[in-house]
Design a protein around this nucleic acid. Structure first.
Lengths: 195, 195
DNA sequence: ACCGGTTATATACAAGCGTATACATCCGGT
DNA sequence: ACCGGATGTATACGCTTGTATATAACCGGT
């Protein structure tokens, strides 16, 4: 394995353990068993290396989501949603650093255009996938727009669930609670709607 | 105005303009028209000052949310939700740096326990408030638990909406789209439920 | 008027940072 | 065997960082 790959791997480790902004060039060198100069040689700068590593991490993040989504095969939509959210929560437990890095990426995107585009593009791809998860059966006749809207809705829930979980695991909702909340809101909508 | 207040104000400006991690002690001094040594004198360290400023900013953030929530007075829940989300989106436009700082706080919380507790506590207070927003009429007989679940659900949507808006304003959903998505999901739940 | 604390300021310092430079090593093609 | 580009490495440079120090200014109480 060349130093280029070692650096990327080391940077990923640092990303998970220390976070983007706290990682120094020397940290990466230590984690990858290489040397300072190789960063400049292979990536031009520390920043470029770290960004490349973050993009890699983010792809892994997408894989993790796909995995969670694939588990939901129940015919009942509510069951499917609940199992999806439960799966996410489980993933937070087993892949915490990955999700933390994902959240840090949100903040970094404000100052790193490359990363921002990566995230935006990633979410643009995620929305239809999430919509398909809902419309699994017989949702062929919905417009592209509504498909996007549903995807955005689920994406928002997912992001919000992630943030709450990582900030305060005690208080954050479980998948079951989220499903219960949705059920209750559905009921409340019907009660106040003029029918 | 003493230097203590000037420093806090300057730090807030830097927080909005440069973000937490990018702000240096000298940036704050420049923004507050003070001097390097006063940071140490009044706050002990740059970190302490910046955290204090972030907590201040976060309180402002809470005020902004309250403002948005107070606008929703429609009797129909769906209308209320839509106007709440629309209000949020409008706030992103007029108070962008504030929301960006809020997101950066998510990432920072991982390494700053003080901030993390502040955020956690803040959300613990936000959840019942959000639930009350939904249960506005006749929700007196729901348990504390479901109240929390509903609050978590709405909080998640809010956070997710924020992140999407700030990452990719083009693709992010509007309040109307979010409401439409919820309506569609409600319909889909009914279709697949065994009734 | 003067004293004593609080507060302000200029400056110095050591440590850590990212990166460039100059040199060594590897390794496939001939 | 040897050349040449690609890759690896040690080191040093200049800069920025946060903070400590030492001195000055302020200001209410007496």
């Amino acid at each position: 394995m060349g130093h280029r790959e070692r650096l990327l791997a080391g940077a990923r480790v640092c990303l998970y353990e220390r976070g983007y902004t706290r990682t120094t060039a020397r940290d990466i060198v230590a984690a990858s068993d290489t040397n300072l100069a190789s960063i400049g040689y292979h990536f031009g700068s520390k920043e470029a290396l770290l960004t490349a590593a973050l993009v890699q991490a983010f792809e892994e993040w997408g894989v993790e989501i796909d995995r969670v989504l694939r588990d939901g095969t129940q015919p009942d939509l509510m069951d499917r949603l609940e199992s999806m959210w439960t799966g996410l929560v489980e993933s937070f437990g087993s892949h915490r650093p990955l999700w933390v890095a994902g959240i840090e990426a949100f903040a970094l995107a404000e100052h790193l255009p490359v990363l921002r585009e990566q995230l935006a593009e990633s979410y643009t791809r995620a929305r239809p996938a999430l919509a398909a998860f809902v419309l699994q059966s017989g949702g062929e006749n919905v417009t592209e727009e509504t498909r996007k809207a549903i995807g955005s809705f689920l994406l928002a829930l997912m992001i919000g669930l992630t943030v709450q979980r990582l900030l305060d695991p005690e208080a954050a909702p479980s998948g079951k609670e989220l499903a219960a909340a949705l059920r209750l809101i559905i009921g409340a909508v019907h009660d106040t709607a003029g029918d």
